[in-house]
Nucleic acid binder design. Structure first.
Length: 478
RNA sequence: GACCUCUUCGUCUAGUGGUUAGGACUCCGCCCUUUCACGGCGGCAACACGGGUUCGAAUCCCGUAGAGGUCGCCA
């Protein structure tokens, strides 16, 4: 495809063509080596990391990692009025939680810093002077406007393809303010200067910047630089098909953190929201995504956010977690729910039993409670099941009696199973028929982890104690 | 309003002139099972609309409608 960027073909100096932007240039030498891919995520700290921003960051990260390039974090905090340190932290925390590590940034250093726009004033002044010397800006009521070339400009977008804007039509494209009365600079200018100064090779950003790109290309040209390659990724829409706003559930990334979504699952979900591997594979690790990611697979159309599917991806990744890692990840949620953590010696067993029962970490506390809380009371469904079983009282008594007769030293899955078989024989029924009543007695729930291992982990004393208490609650029903 | 972009099951998507339009989530049914899940099998469900081009169009062209974006001393 014309204008598509091919690493192997980029070997000489940048091509200069003021009105047809052909991406990208390779600034580095020696020219025989493929040029360094450098992408950046440039959020404005507004108090939270938006789900769309998170995906933009992800795509930039995936592209850089795929090509062995560098991923840069740059904070666009030129609007002092609404930027705060806390807002700054929210973005960093969000990216860390997703596992998107950056090679250069405010806290990571790098040779293109500083990485906060509020600290780059001198750099902007320098480039603005260059613009003035070139006669491309003029003063207007105290501000400084950039004079566009009044011609058609075509951007070869790596996702959208060629997009032409006719700058001869001034009504749509008035010369833009680049410098405010107070001497500060506006977004378009600082954004271009920073991408230029930081040697960004590929600008991967939201579709909402597609129309801005023609302005940026003109700015790059006026600054005497070859523009980077551009790739505009489609926006994320809310469940109603409208633009995702901060009011929408799930718009802020920390929601997923708080609600116990597994970060790998969220990454997987986000990657497939607008990008396709072009086959039927759905579940990817972060590394697999990086290996397979390509701008060719990025869709042109916006995608509607579906929380249920995100939950499913979380579940798929949760099911694959090692019990120890799962325990660690679940611990804060378990603690927050006021549920005691399992004893260290049984932690891995507990979590390997619970692993496939949950899709998110926040579903785990009530399941962990089955192992660590003895003052459980039967839920409504359990009460109903027991009350509808005319022989429940007899069965319960027999089961409790049989388990109580097991010697402390012999307590274990096999011995319990034998006891159940004895009761089954005495009651002329099948052992399998007794499992459900026993579950009701042991947990007060109609569902849950494997019963025998659960009883084994509980130990004879706690198990029998529960049986007795639960029998009272379940049998004394009207 | 002008300009730019988009439009395949409810949702995420595959599909680049010839397919029974495929997969996934959700939902429903069955199987597995000591329960709940997991898993397996099956089902419901889509080419926005109208014109062309073509032997043949989801795929190419034109138009219409709808949606989104840009047009700020916000980013």
């Amino acid at each position: 495809m014309v204008g598509r960027w091919r690493p192997s073909t980029i070997i000489g100096p940048p091509r200069r063509s003021p009105f047809l932007h052909t991406p990208p240039s390779c600034f580095t030498s020696p020219p025989t080596l493929p040029c360094m891919i450098r992408t950046r995520f440039a959020p404005s700290p507004t108090g939270y990391l938006h789900i769309g921003g998170a995906r933009t960051a992800l795509f930039n990260w995936l592209f850089a990692r795929h090509h062995g390039g560098r991923f840069v974090l740059r904070i666009e905090d030129t609007d002092a009025a609404r930027n705060t340190a806390e807002a700054d932290a929210a973005i960093v925390e969000g990216l860390r939680w997703l596992g998107l590590d950056w090679d250069e940034g405010p806290d990571a250093g790098g040779s293109y810093g500083p990485y906060r726009q509020s600290e780059r004033r001198d750099i902007y002044d320098k480039w603005f002077e260059k613009l003035r010397e070139a006669g491309r800006v003029y003063e207007d009521n105290g501000t400084w406007r950039f004079a566009f070339e009044r011609r058609a400009v075509t951007v070869e977008d790596l996702v959208a393809g060629p997009v032409t804007m006719d700058y001869a039509d001034e009504s749509n494209t008035p010369d833009m303010v680049v410098r405010r009365r107070d001497g500060s600079y506006i977004f378009h200018f600082v954004n271009v200067v920073d991408d230029l100064e930081m040697n960004i090779s590929h600008v991967i950003r939201g579709d909402d910047h597609l129309s801005n790109t023609h302005k940026h290309v003109q700015l790059f040209e006026a600054l005497g630089a070859a523009p980077p390659a551009f790739a505009h990724i489609p926006l994320i829409l809310n469940a109603e098909g409208g633009k995702m706003s901060k009011r929408d559930r799930g718009a802020s990334l920390d929601t997923y953190h708080r609600e116990g979504f597994v970060p790998d699952g969220v990454v997987n979900f986000l990657a497939l929201l607008g990008w396709s591997p072009k086959d039927d594979t759905e579940v990817f690790s972060r590394d697999e995504l990086a290996r397979r990611f390509s701008l060719d697979g990025v869709a042109r159309h916006a995608a509607t956010f579906d929380l249920a599917k995100c939950r499913w991806f979380s579940g798929r990744h949760l099911h694959q977690m090692e019990p120890g890692a799962l325990a660690e990840a679940a611990a804060p949620h378990v603690a927050a729910a006021g549920v005691p953590a399992p004893a260290p010696d049984v932690t891995e067993r507990v979590y390997s039993l619970l692993r496939e029962k949950a899709q998110t970490l926040s579903e785990l506390p009530p399941l962990v409670a089955l192992f660590t809380q003895d003052d459980l009371s039967p839920d409504a469904a359990a009460l109903e099941k027991a009350s509808h079983n005319p022989t429940f009282a007899d069965t319960a008594a027999a089961l409790r009696g049989a388990l109580e007769r097991i010697d402390e030293q012999e307590w274990g899955g096999e011995r319990i199973q034998a006891a159940i078989a004895d009761v089954a024989a005495a009651l002329s029924t099948k052992p399998g028929k007794l499992m459900f009543p026993l579950r009701l007695l042991a947990t007060g729930k109609t569902g849950g982890p494997d019963l025998l291992p659960l009883l084994e982990i509980l130990g004879r004393h706690r198990a029998c104690d529960r049986l007795a208490r639960m029998e009272t609650s379940l049998v004394s029903q009207p």
